[in-house]
Amino acid sequence: MSLIIAYIGKKGCVMAADKRKIGYFGDKKNLNLLEDELYGGSIGTDEEFLARASELGISVKITDDANKLKVVGNCIRGEVSTKGTMETKRRRVYGTTNGYQIIELLGSQTKSRTAGESGIVIFGNNFAKQVAQRLISKKLKGSKSLRYMGELFEDILKEVSSKTPTVGKNFDVLMQQPNFNKSEAQNHLNLTIDHDIKVLTKFRQELTEQLVQQSMEIEMVNKIIDKGSVGNVVNVEGNMVVVQLNDKTQAMDSNWKQLAAPGKNVLMFTESGNVEIGDEVVIENEDLCLKKDKSSLKCDIILCSL
């Protein structure tokens, strides 16, 4: 769902990219049919795309705010990505003066890496690439200033976007022109890309940790007791009540760390003067209380089932 065009030359690098992102959901067979028609170029406009998706029972969300280009060091990075069931596939082009590299990643693992010195690189689906290539061949004149190439690429993106909904009508154009010879360019690219992939790896690790934490929190929230017995009173001192948890109840803090396992004691508080050792403590209608007379109890812990 992208079109990225990069020019790399002796004077610098310029990249242009659309900002379209499309998400869709539905029957796999119909999804494949829709993609075949979309990438084959038989669907020409957003309206046709939405109408055809509706015919096939596919839910579609189109946005035009994705950032596919980024300045990294003295390079520009362009990226297209595809989310699979297990991992995200990324294809990146890094460009600078007198050099570029194309990287293919699965997750944060490098699957291929190729280098070049100059030229025009195009990322996108086959239909969008073919249209862009024809337009470049037709429109490209002798001058190859970075400004001229940037304006040319933007014109091409506009024309391609009028022929396929896979390319949006909003664009970014970035330019970098450091003073590198061919050897310096590849050295800088190597350092920049290695660091950028390390940043991606760290981000993915942090994201994985967050997802694990969120999953654990969801699991624990589902275990919060809102009805039933939690334990029995084993000691009373003034308004302080010590309760021994039963064999199905544990006490957690606000970070979901266990404070007391089943069978252990926890501290609660009461305003009733009628609490006795042996009284059963229950939760009814999400209220913590004594079973015998519904006297309210308070605590600063979360009571969960195992």
Rank of each mutant, 00 (worst) to 15 (best):
147 R>F: 06
167 V>K: 13
177 Q>M: 12
134 R>T: 11
182 K>F: 00
166 T>P: 05
164 T>E: 07
137 S>Y: 13
145 S>R: 14
185 A>Q: 07
136 I>F: 01
149 M>D: 10
169 K>Q: 09
160 V>T: 08
151 E>S: 15
177 Q>A: 13
146 L>H: 12
163 K>D: 08
180 F>L: 07
173 V>P: 10
135 L>Q: 01
180 F>V: 04
170 N>F: 12
155 D>A: 14
178 P>C: 07
136 I>P: 03
180 F>I: 01
176 Q>D: 06
163 K>R: 14
163 K>W: 00
151 E>D: 13
176 Q>V: 15
135 L>W: 04
161 S>F: 00
150 G>E: 06
174 L>K: 10
154 E>Q: 12
183 S>W: 04
156 I>A: 03
178 P>S: 11
146 L>Q: 10
161 S>E: 00
185 A>Y: 07
184 E>R: 13
170 N>D: 08
182 K>T: 12
154 E>F: 03
168 G>R: 07
182 K>I: 13
152 L>E: 07
160 V>A: 03
183 S>V: 12
138 K>A: 14
179 N>T: 07
139 K>I: 05
174 L>D: 10
141 K>M: 08
148 Y>H: 12
151 E>P: 06
146 L>A: 05
169 K>D: 14
150 G>R: 00
154 E>N: 11
147 R>W: 09
151 E>W: 06
174 L>Q: 14
172 D>N: 09
170 N>C: 00
139 K>W: 09
154 E>V: 11
166 T>V: 05
157 L>K: 01
170 N>I: 00
181 N>T: 11
166 T>Q: 08
